[in-house]
Design a protein around this nucleic acid. Structure first.
Length: 565
RNA sequence: UGGGGUGUGGCCAAGCGGUAAGGCAUCGGCCUUUGGAGCCGAGAUUCGGAGGUUCGAAUCCUCCCGCCCCAGCCA
């Protein structure tokens, strides 16, 4: 991976690891893991975790495992494990041969459970789910012990074996840790270790009908893999005592350290798996890879690069306080990356025809155009210029407001890489809509400059009518119309805040001929407008582009300021 | 009102007893054949609040306040 893409920020986890290394806590080893549950697609929040875990391994010369936390067959699926692997790889990380599954450890976990039963530290409880909840007590009141809590190890062993063999229906019994029903930490009030689930698992099939709970399984999986630092999100902080309890009471190879950090929140979007699933399932969006979603598949289709996402993950930092990061930062990271790399091209999104009356009919000139001013090595290309061209509708105003430095009647602008033109006449249709501009050009200005060095109003991009390729362009905007749906005064369902303008499809766009051949995944800067990528739907006959992010637009700011006045 | 966390400019975030890094955003200016990019500059007398310790506190102590998480046989 590139090293110069960002400057590492110190954070408390790095400090802990550096200290552990100094004290030789794990014999100089650093081993992390990224443990997704394959029950949905990965999103930008997961990217933060992936970058953290794999990044730590890279920085401290350790390793990072990919482990699927697949302990609940009722929600998980192979489609998700495949998408997760694709996304992690795409982000630029390599787990080498260390692809693990919690389900690989089911036999081992079962043995550990037996051991706890024999030690009198776990018991089979016949209480119903409702009863268990009742017996758990409340935040302020202690719980009550289950009447089945003091069964003998022999009886528990026999019962647990029968649970495993499928004798009991779902929900009829659970295996619980025997800890303390009066603990102020509810996670220690005899947490459930195993539940009965007659469900087919995507990997183990029907080999099991009892499945371990996350809390019981996670620490052991970490230990079996030799994990040193088990990094998770804040909500697991209360679970740490049980994580430690499990490891302390079992003959495990090592005792990893659980460290919690604050998950990423981004404004103007949704980040919960539940909400993303709902948007996909109920077709509010086109799928998991809809470019409006913060899923990695969506961001990829939108045109985000792994480099930009990694830079973003590094920039937002890692801390323990809950925060809401501004979408503008994510966009900034993309622009910064693409500015260096994207080839500049001409594309007119909302065409306005311009006839250059003093330019010879039938004549075509090949203008030299630089591909990327940020990268001289990117070279140049030829752009066909002729008597009739398209410019952007926004680049002309019949009655220009103050500070509008573009074309208007009588004014002169530069056509990038071509000539200066002056607007002589505005042609309108019966409804009074502007349909064409008649302009004249200055033959002296070829290439975009003149000997007298006179200033022009501005510089516009353009495409020759005869050479233009028709394209569809999809413009994306914020998924939500409010920064934080949960913070709105009246608590409506988040779908009420979906931005109706999050997708705008432009059909009649005109792009320079070189773009016809661009295949899916290629990205460009459409001069003066933004960064765009070729969508998966694109074909040579019908090119389709996605707007990944706009360019910073100071005219838009001025205009807005003028309107606000 | 039990337990666990957390409060540094609009948004993130360094800092760990020696007198407030950095990024995003914002606002100025320069520059410019992208109103892009780039460059320069501005902004917290102040670190949730109040006390205290100290020559000296965002950093230590005390009390108070706010916000988040926990009562799944989800992860």
């Amino acid at each position: 991976m590139s090293n110069a893409e960002f400057t590492p920020t110190p954070n408390f986890i790095k400090a802990i690891i550096a200290n552990d290394l100094e004290t030789n806590k794990y014999g100089g080893r650093v081993h992390t893991r990224f443990p997704p549950e394959p029950n949905g697609y990965l999103h930008i929040g997961h990217a933060k975790s992936i970058c953290l875990n794999f990044g730590l391994a890279l920085e401290f010369k350790g390793r990072c495992n990919l482990r699927f936390d697949d302990t609940n067959p009722s929600k998980e699926d192979v489609e998700y494990v495949e998408s997760i692997k694709t996304d992690v790889r795409w982000l630029g990380f390599d787990w080498e041969d260390r692809e693990y599954y919690a389900s690989d450890y089911f036999p081992q976990l079962y043995e550990f459970a037996l051991r706890l039963i024999r030690k009198g530290k776990a018991y089979v409880d016949d209480l119903s789910a409702e009863k268990i909840r009742e017996y758990r007590g409340t935040l302020t009141e202690p719980g009550k012990e289950s009447p089945y809590r003091n069964r003998s190890p022999e009886e528990n062993l026999a019962l647990f074996e029968r649970m495993r063999s499928g004798e009991f229906p779902d929900g009829s019994r659970v295996l619980r840790a025997k800890i303390d029903m009066a603990s102020p930490n509810l996670n220690l009030r005899d947490p459930v270790m195993y539940r009965i689930l007659h469900a087919e698992h995507h990997r183990t099939g029907n080999a099991w009908c009892i499945y371990p709970m996350y809390d019981f399984a996670h620490g052991q999986c970490d230990s079996i893999e030799g994990i040193t630092h088990s990094i998770c999100t804040l909500e697991f902080e209360d679970h740490r005592p049980f994580y430690d309890w499990v490891l302390d009471n079992l003959p495990v190879p090592c005792h990893p350290q659980q460290i919690e950090f604050a998950r990423l929140n981004l404004n103007y979007t949704v980040m919960s798996k539940r909400k993303l699933l709902e948007l996909v399932d109920k077709a509010y969006v086109r799928g998991w890879d809809d470019p409006r979603l913060p899923t990695l598949a969506g961001l990829r289709r939108r045109g985000f690069t792994p480099e930009a996402i990694r830079a973003f993950a590094e920039t937002v930092g890692v801390a323990k306080r809950e925060s809401m990061v501004d979408m503008a930062l994510l966009e900034h990271c993309l622009r910064e990356d693409l500015n260096r790399r994207a080839q500049r091209v001409m594309a007119v999104l909302r065409p306005l025809k311009v006839v250059i009356t003093n330019y010879p009919e039938g004549r075509v000139e090949e203008m030299d155009a630089e591909n990327n001013p940020e990268d001289p090595g990117a070279g140049t290309r030829k752009l066909p210029f002729s008597r009739e061209i398209f410019i952007e509708q926004d680049d002309f105003r019949e009655d220009p407001p103050r500070k509008f430095f573009r074309l208007s009647p009588g004014r002169e602008i530069r056509l990038k890489h071509a000539y200066y033109i002056r607007c002589d006449e505005v042609v309108k249709d019966a409804q009074g809509r502007i349909v064409e501009l008649r302009c004249s050009y200055d033959p002296e200005s070829r290439g975009g400059g003149t000997r007298d060095n006179r200033k022009v109003q501005g510089t516009s991009h353009w495409v020759s009518v005869a050479h233009a390729v028709n394209a569809e362009v999809r413009l994306y905007d914020k998924l939500l119309s409010v920064p934080d749906a949960a913070a709105e005064k009246e608590e409506k369902d988040f779908k009420e805040y979906l931005n109706p303008g999050s997708l705008e499809i432009l059909k009649g766009c005109k792009v320079e001929p070189s773009l016809a051949a661009a295949g899916p995944g290629r990205f460009f800067q459409f001069l003066r407008q933004g960064y765009f990528c070729v969508d998966a739907d694109s074909t040579p006959e019908k090119p389709v582009f996605n707007r990944s992010v706009t360019l910073r637009d100071s005219w838009a700011k001025i205009e807005k300021a003028q309107q606000d006045k």
